[in-house]
């Protein structure tokens, strides 16, 4: 009897901080991406301050892509809510829409690049253009990684597996990339 009570003293410990480690890891990952883009934008500012900086119009496609990525964030959030409320039949279409919007975003970014080429702003040339290509390109690469993540979630959804933690992490990442784009867009608009 006594033994049983004492046994409880060394029960499996409860966690001192109740955040899912994977979720937390994603936040750290996002922090490092954020730093990466901070580095690029700081380099941009430093370089711009030195003069010899070619001015050109920011392609208007970027404005459209901004709208698209905001929309996709909304549908991503709806996905998450659907999972939370266990409205599983709504999950698949919502992920699909988000997925399509993500592709559209990338397509619009591509059109933006074409527009820049039309203004004869190339990757090779004045750093103002090079920076724009690299910053948008790197952001696009991250969007591709998010789309890949989305595909994994979608694949699971088609098997009728709904891992709410995974979907939450995916949602967080998607929102983060959206907000990151908003930051970049505002930054690039203000500091031409």
């Amino acid at each position: 009897m006594n033994e049983a009570i004492d046994f409880k003293i060394v029960e499996e410990p409860k966690k001192p901080l109740a955040m899912n480690p994977k979720k937390f890891g994603m936040w750290l990952f996002m922090a490092s991406i954020f730093i990466l883009f901070m580095a690029f934008t700081s380099a941009y500012i430093v370089r711009r301050a030195e003069g010899n900086w070619q001015l050109f119009e920011l392609p208007k496609q970027f404005l459209f892509s901004t709208v698209v990525i905001v929309l996709s964030s909304v549908t991503m959030q709806l996905t998450y809510w659907s999972v939370k409320k266990e409205l599983t039949q709504r999950v698949k279409p919502m992920i699909l829409i988000t997925f399509i919007l993500g592709i559209v975003f990338l397509f619009l970014q591509w059109l933006g690049w074409e527009e820049m080429v039309g203004q004869s702003v190339h990757l090779v040339g004045n750093p103002s253009g090079s920076f724009l290509y690299i910053i948008t390109g790197l952001h696009g690469a991250h969007i591709i990684s998010a789309i890949a993540f989305l595909l994994i979630v979608l694949h699971k959804a088609f098997q009728n597996k709904f891992d709410s933690v995974q979907i939450e992490i995916c949602t967080t990442y998607w929102h983060f990339l959206g907000v990151l784009w908003l930051y970049l867009f505002v930054f690039l608009t203000l500091l031409r």
């Binding site: 750290l28 922090a31 490092s32 991406i33 730093i35 990466l36 580095a39 690029f40 380099a43």
Partner: peptide, 9 residues
């Protein structure tokens, strides 16, 4: 985490 991304850039 805060510095290696900068080296990457």
């Amino acid at each position: 985490i805060l510095s290696f991304p900068v080296l990457f850039s």
